[in-house]
Amino acid sequence: MKQSLLEIKHLNKAYGENIILKSFNLKVEKGDVVVVIGPSGCGKSTLLRCINALEDIQGGEILIGGEPISRNAKNISTMRQKVGMVFQSYDLFPHKTILDNVLLAPIKVQKRKRNEVEKEALELLGKVGLADRKNDYPRQLSGGQKQRVAIVRALIMHPDILLLDEITAALDPEMVREVLEVVISLAKSGSTMMIVTHEMAFAKAIATRVLFLENGEIVEESKEPKAFFESPQTERAKKFLKSFEY
């Protein structure tokens, strides 16, 4: 059988008594754009954080390319390089220039040559329209620009899968678009992604698969995103989607 890019088996995650994910299962194949939606507290962000081993898990297994990723394993750095992550808050390193933000990990973690990475970094920054800001500091950029840099910083590591955790939630509406357009062009180029978002129009436009979560469980799953957003099968998902309409 073909090896899935990401496989989650019986994942259990709890904060103390508070159970977040209950025996969660998921397979993601190369080229999938999985959009995860659901009400606050349904465990969608926690799910992404578990995949990148930012959280301790209480049971189950997360395999990336067939290899387990675990917080305390020796190969954690190698495994994390396969998973790119962009967070909700602008998480650039404030003491480094835009270019250095992007270059730091490839040089220090992957031990790549500076001039080679720099060339790629400028190319990627150019693609998101920020090559001319390379010597600026994060504080000089708008939220949307920072978020685009954060995407480039994740991409330059050549991850197998990119996790986007509500990356537009802290942005002004106008900036949302410039960030999401970058993500859409990534999806077109065949990147594998898992996206947690509250932007339903965006979700509809980009998803190849949709997961609707509640209380740490998949309530509805669809490989036909258009159909899902127009006529969800479960009552719960119907109600949730309805809350975005006025």
Partner: peptide, 21 residues
């Protein structure tokens, strides 16, 4: 902020590298 540690870790940086850089 905690997110600084996390975004550094998420890039595959070891704890010592996160502190240092």
């Amino acid at each position: 902020p905690k997110i600084q540690y996390e975004s550094s870790e998420a890039l595959g940086m070891a704890a010592s590298q996160t502190y240092l850089y």
